[in-house]
Simulated assay, not measured.
Amino acid sequence: MTLTPAPFGPHFGFGLYVHWPYCARICPYCDFNVYAAKNRDSGPLVESIAADIHAHRPRMPQHGALDTVYFGGGTPALLRPDELGTILLAASETFGIKRGAEITLEANPNDVLRADLVGLQRAGVTRLSIGVQSLRDSALAFLGRDHDAASAADAVKRALKVFPSVSIDLIYARPGQSPANWEAELVDALALGAPHLSLYELTFEPRTPFGLAAQRGDIAPMGDDAQADLYELTQAVTTKAGMPAYEVSNHAASAQHQSRHNLIYWRGGDWIGVGPGAHGRLSVGGGRYASEAERRPEAYMANVQALHSGWGDAGRLEPLEIAREILAMGLRAAEGVDLRRVETVSGQPVPRDKIEVFVDKGWAEMVGAELRLTPSGRLLADAITAALSP
């Protein structure tokens, strides 16, 4: 008798996300769980994160070795190689880390320029994700960054000498940005030679300085139609350069350079979230659980000490919540989603008549049971997901 794999869980990938909440400077557009680094002693939080990883094993006895580890933030590149090694050792001792695993570290250009890159590599890091954000000095000043375009380019070149897999982040759809200016900047970014690009439209989250400025009328966000034009321009330029989108905002030179950690999210795999404010998805005993760690570092460390875990009890997701998440995350990726997974979890059919409309409009395609959005359809991913959700 052949058992059908569950429609979610670690067989779609198993990762560890480590949130380091401190930054040397907090950017005005950022709505992540971040705090000023100042002159903090990182040791206690590193030890708490390691203890939190160990505490997950009793809850997840059937999970095997990790496919990926992702250090995000905040600015995890503020950690020394030995501190990263302490966290990776805890992961290795607790679950094991597969040979050839992807281990990503987020860093800012100035971090890369002053870091011991070989030391980071020896600690276990295999991939750098560099927050370039722009290659124009005026835009970097507007975005509140502490580097200039020349240092950003130097950082990417320096990283590529040590790490074969490097990603760079850019923010576009900035107020007043013209298609010609964005195209020129994107061409400059492609010329740096990084095999992965994460290209994000600037958002104005309500509680950020940018969000508050927009509410006051001090900043005028770019209109939806202009943003859509820039998105379509982005797809054309990157595809021509051999860096097509494999997800709404992510581009890679080949499958080898796609973010394996992010693919776990989009495919409905499992990941442990440790560090202040980190989120996780854990599949245990046929159920799927959402974890969220305490946001404030002091509360997180206290929880780890008291409960031997940063998040306490994880909430069990309802079948409809799981199905909607599988659909929403799966449609973000170019590879699409097998609708049988959604229907198995929800117990409801995905409406084929609506899919036919999207196919006729050129927004989607069906390949067997898999629904995939076209490049123009990915521009409407949220609306299409809402229309098809059980």
Rank of each mutant, 00 (worst) to 15 (best):
P7R: 04
N33R: 03
D41K: 09
H19L: 11
S42W: 08
C27I: 08
W20R: 00
W20L: 01
V18Q: 02
K38E: 14
K38S: 08
P5C: 05
A24S: 14
N39Q: 12
G15E: 13
A6P: 14
P28Y: 01
A36L: 15
K38Q: 12
W20E: 00
N33S: 07
P21T: 04
P5H: 04
V34W: 00
P10G: 04
C30T: 06
Y17F: 15
C30R: 10
I26A: 03
Y22V: 02
S42V: 03
V18C: 04
S42T: 12
A24E: 15
G15F: 10
G15N: 05
P7F: 09
I26R: 15
P10F: 05
Y22E: 01
C30W: 07
H11T: 14
P21S: 06
G15I: 11
G43L: 13
G9F: 08
A36G: 12
H11C: 10
C23G: 06
I26L: 15
P10K: 12
G43S: 15
A36F: 05
V34C: 13
V34M: 00
A24I: 10
F8C: 04
Y17C: 10
R25A: 15
Y35H: 14
D41F: 02
A24P: 05
F14E: 03
C23I: 05
Y29H: 10
H19P: 07
G13V: 12
D41A: 13
A36H: 12
D31L: 02
A6R: 15
H19N: 14
P21Y: 07
F8H: 10
F32D: 08
G9V: 09
V18A: 01
D41T: 06
